[in-house]
Every structure is written in C-alpha cells, then in structure tokens.
Design a binder for these strands. Structure first.
Lengths: 207, 207
DNA sequence: TACGGGCAATCGAACGCTGGTTCGGTGGGA
DNA sequence: TCCCACCGAACCAGCGTTCGATTGCCCGTA
C-alpha cells in the first residue's frame, strides 16, 4: 500500500514535469523533489529516466484505451461510437492534459525497445478509430483512405485538446458534440458524392 | 554574400537538427559541425542557442505566411481561399517537414520575450484561418466558434503533415482536395442545420 | 519475551560526462 | 595597422547515475 502510494506519486510527478518541461529539460532531481523523495531514493523505485518515461506513457495509454473501450461498449450505433471516441478523447484531454501532452510529444524520445512497445499501443488506439470509420462509411473506402481520415479526426481532437481550450468538463462535452457533427457530416457527404467536392472547389489549378 | 551564405547554412543546419533531435537534445556542437564551422565560429554569427531557435522559427513562419498570402491572393471565392490554405499548409508540410515540426513542437521552449514574438506570429496565421471561415460561414457564428473551428482545421492539417504521409507533392495536392472537401462539408452542413447533428448523434447521454 | 540477523526503504555524497558559453588568440585582406 | 572571420581550449554548471552507508521493521529462534 505504502509503496504503491509512493509509486503512484512518482509517476504522477514525472507525468506533470515531463509535460511542463519536456522530457529532456525535465530533470530527475526535480521529479524526485516533487515526489518527496531523495534522488537516490527515486532510483530505488525506477531504473532510470527512460524507464520513467515509459511507465508514464504506458499507464497513460492504458487509461485512455480503457476509457475508450468502456465508452464504446455503451454505444450501439456506428454514429454513437464515433461520438464516444470524440467525447472520450476530449474528456481525457481535459482531465489529463499533462498525460496527453506527453503522449503526443515525447513518445518519440524513448529508446528501443520501449519505443516500439509504446508505438504499438498508440497503433491500437488508431486502429479503434479506423474500425469505427469503416463501420460508418456508406461507400467502402480503401484502407489508406480510412487511415488518413482517422488521422484527420485524431488531429482535430489533439488540436483542441492540447490547447487551453477546455475550461470545464461541460465544455469538453458540448464541444465533443460539435466536433463529432462536423466530422461526421464531412465524412459522410464527402463519401456520398466525392465529385461534389471537386465541383465546389472546382478551379483548383491556378488560372 | 559569403556571410549570408554562412548564415543560411547555419539556419538550415539548425532547423534540421532541431527537427530531428528536438530542441533540448540538439547540441550546438552538432549544429556547428553540420554548418562546417567550429563551435566558437558559430558563436560569431549567433548569440546563443535560444536565439538560434528563434531565428529558425521566425524565418519558417515568415515563409509559411508568405506562401499563404501568395496563394490567398490568387483565390477569388471563399471556398477557394479555404482550399488555398489547405494546399499551402500541406505543401509546406511536404517541402519543409523539419520546419513544420519545429513550429509545432518546439516554439514553447523559447525564452521570453522571444516566445511572445513567435506566439504572435503564429496568432497571425490563425487569424488568417478565422477570416477565411468567417467569410465562408453561411450563418454568422460567434468568434469563439469560429476560433475553435479554425483550430480543428489546423489540427487536421498538422496531423497529416506531421506524419510521414506525404510522399510527393502530388500526394499533398490530392490529399488537400479531400481534406478541404471533408472540412468544408462538415463546416457548412453543421452550420446550416446544427440541430441535425444532435439528431443523428441523438442518444448522447448514456442510457 | 528478548534477541539478532536480514531485508526494504531511504539518504548524502560523489563521479563522469556533456552541454552552453567565453576567452584569448591568429591570419589575411583593406 | 586594423578589423573581421574564425579557431582551440578551457570553464562551469547541470545532468543521469552509482555507491556506501543508515534506519527501522519483520521474523525466526532461544
């Protein structure tokens, strides 16, 4: 119990300081101080800085995936699944802004083989998104197109979730509805009549 | 001429190394080596690491803004302006992936007052996006809503531009059409009948 | 119950290294 | 002669990491 409390405090401190300072500017000394431990005391619990980053990322991604799966289990239509993804992501971005920041910015800095492990976990999340869009897609799109659409969606979500834009959970909830609707319309319409896009945006090639 | 050549080489080297390693892991020694200069020689041209990052960011943002303004000047309808933004951004992301990475990830690490100056320049870019969406908006939306829609759009663009997804300029060009259409439909439809979003996504609150 | 050995938790202090930065030069063109 | 571009070498601070202790609690044994 006590040691798990310590462990949790360490991970929490590391997450915050990684998020605020960035991985390389964050110092182990500062993390130890924030976790109420001496420098050497911290090393009793974790093997090093790289492992610390891994632990933070691993737990953060597990939490995100768990939240998504829970929300997905309650959603019965493809549309509701999309909304569940959007809501979960935005809610997570509000509740755990620091974790999301580390997930999106610092995961690249891990050393192998830990890096691959985290990349795989991120891939799992992406795959959830692709599956939702595939279900939703009125005209069967290619895997490549579904992938890029998913990346678009996640880019949108990270864009707002990263900024200090979500002032309350209610904010996140309403915004999720708007984001979901915007993407949904674009995705469905674009699919239903792809040439219409070219029509509106006709004079593409400069005169 | 010779000194400007040196200066350009330094900025180019710094940009690449910042992009690949991240600001804090990039060493001045490595940048000097890449620019064919000794460590002390580099300091003859720039005042320090922070200033180097500032110079890279400042030039990269100037280039991006200039490219956008040029494309905007050729676009006559609001729809074409949107497409111009999308195309410019994606094209820039392909041509200057390193610069875009630094812009999106490392600008926060600048010290004041340089940070504020770069933030202002980024704000200028954002403002261009807001202006385009306002022109495009069939029903007048609030400033807040236009801002968040713009952030959504830019998030999408950075999402794809950051990944190794753009394999050629043609790729970027076609993808721009699809992204533009997707966003445009979502934005217009969502605006035209906002309650329809709630209709499709009706059973939001868990049963 | 008293004792003692061992182990987990924790620490102060140091080590080696790398980073950004500075200093005192040197050579060559005007 | 002077100045500008440029360099080698050093300085110092901060980093991640390790080492050798010290403490206090648990547990088997007498």
């Amino acid at each position: 119990m006590a040691i798990e409390h310590r462990y949790g405090a360490i991970l929490e401190a590391a997450q915050d300081i990684f998020a605020h300072r960035g991985f390389h500017q964050a110092s182990i000394r500062e993390i130890a101080r924030a976790a109420d431990l001496s420098l050497a005391g911290l090393y009793h619990y974790v093997g090093g800085k790289d492992e610390l980053l891994f632990l933070v990322l691993d737990q953060a991604l597990d939490d995100l995936l768990a939240a998504l799966d829970e929300a997905l289990a309650r959603a019965r239509t493809p549309e509701l699944k999309l909304l569940a993804l959007v809501q979960t992501h935005l809610d997570y971005g509000f509740r755990r802004a620091a974790a999301l920041k580390v997930i999106n910015r610092d995961y690249e800095l891990l050393q192998e083989p830990r890096r691959s492990e985290i990349v795989a976990k991120r891939g799992e999340y992406l795959r959830r998104g692709i599956a939702i869009l595939r279900e939703l897609d009125p005209h069967a799109r290619s895997a490549d197109e579904l992938l890029s659409a998913t990346i678009l969606l996640l880019g949108m979500l990270n864009g707002i979730a990263t900024r200090p834009f979500l002032r309350s959970r209610e904010d996140a909830h309403t915004l999720a509805g708007e984001v979901g609707a915007l993407f949904l319309y674009g995705f469905l319409e674009h699919s239903a009549d792809r040439s219409a896009g070219a029509a509106i945006l006709g004079g593409t090639h400069d005169a």
